[in-house]
Amino acid sequence: MRKKKIPFIEQLGVHTILLAAFLIMAIPFFWMVSTSFKNPDEIYIFPPRWVPHRPTFDNYVELFKTVDFGRPLINTVIVAVTSTFLSVMLSAMAGYGFAKFRFRGKEKLFLLVLATLMVPGQMTLIPVYLILNSLNLLNTYAGLILPGVASAFGIFFMRQFIMSIPDELIDAAKMDGAKEFFIFLKIILPLSKPALATLTIFNFVGAWNSFLWPLIVATDEKMYTLPVAISVVQGQYGEKIALQMSGSFIVIIPIIIVFFFAQKYIIKGLSMSGMKF
């Protein structure tokens, strides 16, 4: 069948809107990166300079020496990587159970898990804080990581994807004597790579950018994560715009790298995760 040709005016309109959206998102990002390499005398001049005449790394050096930005960076890496790994694995296990296992009350239990999506996270802050306080987990890595490990959205997302995997593959593996853990490790996980990559991106970005929970749990500056450290820089060094832009750029770099390498899996995972019950 011959494809219908899109009118030139319609193509022009779509491309204009896309270009405008790109500029709206790209210009602030470019300005942030450019400012992070500027000398103080180049920031407030008019008309503004989009490209610094004398690029310098002094802002980044000062950020790690004066503000001690290295410790929050290490904390954020530990929290984001550990939280993402545990959350993705638990979501995959639970999603596999809800998708392929048969047990009494499965549908009601799954609906109960989905019901937690309607509860705002702010409502659980105080109860979770009190629980962690009673367990002496405040100002620890465990306190920063554990509350974000269980994800109702992750369980739902993985269940929807795993449901598309043919039952014949699992039945054949069981006939060959394979145990459940072997089936999950060697069949379910390899076939779920697009969904796992997508969920990894969602969890990693959420954990990396998390601000409110680390601000509440971390009572010591040694346990601050990058978003909290950025707020401290803004409060103590508000007049040093280049210093703030340097910290913001460091926060964004890992997210860009992760998304760049996993974008094809994200598109495939979203397209293959049907919303059927």
Rank of each mutant, 00 (worst) to 15 (best):
L86S: 10
M275E: 10
A26P: 01
I266N: 00
E62Y: 06
V88M: 06
E180T: 14
S87N: 13
S246H: 00
Q11N: 12
V258A: 13
G247H: 02
P52G: 10
F69C: 04
L146S: 07
V14D: 00
S83P: 00
F204S: 02
S271T: 15
I126L: 15
I257C: 09
G238A: 10
I256T: 13
V33E: 01
I131K: 08
S246N: 00
F46S: 13
T16K: 04
P55F: 05
V88A: 08
Y224A: 09
T76C: 01
I252T: 15
L130N: 13
V113E: 01
F259L: 13
T200H: 05
T56V: 09
Q234M: 13
Y237H: 12
G269T: 03
Y60G: 03
S34H: 06
F249L: 13
V258F: 14
T200R: 03
L109Q: 10
F64M: 07
Q236G: 11
L196F: 02
I145Y: 01
V119S: 08
S273T: 14
M89H: 05
M123D: 06
V81K: 08
D41T: 14
K108G: 11
P190E: 05
S248G: 11
P7A: 10
R2D: 12
T35A: 09
A99P: 02
F30P: 01
F57H: 05
M93E: 04
G247D: 02
L226I: 15
D68C: 02
I24S: 07
G70P: 00
I267S: 03
L243D: 05
K174L: 11
S164T: 15
P47G: 09
A178Y: 06
F202R: 03
